[in-house]
């Protein structure tokens, strides 16, 4: 009899992703789902989907889900967690959602130390709406609303959310990871697991920022996009742990 060596995590529904070829949302979804399954909390997890490319996350994660208005996921998650403090609550948000329209909500959820986990997928562009400039778009990077490349004097320099939130007392754990290689993927999963564990232990707000690719709107092949991320995004958004409270260390 054949031995089962791999199967879809129970954390994901049996549905094909709508993501573009080469987009790393699929990998990140799987990592979150695997962690929830491995921690044995799928039946007590409540996720919040954002507005953006991962708007249909509620169709993919195999747990209770709420779909939030653009940027408001941390406020929605706050409402859920306050009602169910014993449940595992997470938001899954892109950079337009979290770092632009939802900055107030993420900053204050972090400030309050809401015991939730935020998965922040940063691909330096608005994907769903067709490749507009995001607050995370790199200086010089072309987007449909920065057709000549982002001009620092006109649109400012990109925002580093992990660094910014790490200045607050509320967060228990903040780490920036990526998923461009199997080694990075393993590290990303470890970080996501650590964040959920810290939430379950009631230690405070946790966020894992995942640098991600958008081959479609960057106008690159999936492989080119992975290399571009490593060569351009990581230098500006260095990987690493930005906040680990004494209890989490």
């Amino acid at each position: 009899m054949a031995e089962m060596v791999f199967q879809r995590t129970k954390g994901l529904q049996d549905r094909p992703f709508h993501y573009c070829p080469g987009c790393t949302h699929g990998i990140i979804h799987r990592l979150v789902a695997e962690v929830l399954e491995e921690l044995g909390v799928l039946d007590k997890a409540i996720g919040v989907a954002p507005v953006g490319c991962s708007v249909f996350a509620y169709d993919y994660f195999n747990c209770d889900m709420q779909e939030a208005a653009h940027g408001r996921a941390p406020a929605v998650a706050t409402g859920i967690k306050r009602v169910h403090p014993d449940k595992v609550v997470f938001t899954y948000q892109g950079d337009g959602d979290l770092a632009s329209i939802g900055t107030a909500e993420i900053v204050h959820a972090a400030m309050r130390g809401e015991k939730i986990t935020t998965i922040f997928v940063n691909n330096a562009i608005y994907g769903m709406t067709g490749g507009q400039m995001a607050p995370t778009t790199l200086v010089g990077q072309k987007a449909t609303t920065s057709p000549f490349g982002r001009d620092k004097n006109h649109a400012g320099s990109p925002i580093r959310m992990s660094e910014m939130l790490a200045t607050l007392e509320g967060p228990a754990y903040i780490e920036r990871v990526t998923v461009t290689t199997p080694a990075h993927i393993r590290k990303a999963k470890k970080a996501i697991r650590k964040a959920f564990e810290a939430q379950i232990e009631g230690k405070g707000f946790t966020m894992i920022e995942v640098l991600s690719t958008c081959p479609t709107n960057w106008g690159m092949s999936p492989v080119e996009a992975l290399r571009w991320l490593e060569e351009n995004m990581i230098p500006y958004y260095p990987l690493g742990v930005y906040k680990a409270s004494e209890e989490v260390k």
Binding site: A75, V76, R82, V83
Partner: peptide
């Protein structure tokens, strides 16, 4: 804005 979205989350959670 945040307050009404907290209401959304809490109402959706059954409260």
């Amino acid at each position: 804005v945040a307050a009404i979205n907290m209401v959304y989350g809490a109402a959706g959670a059954g409260a």
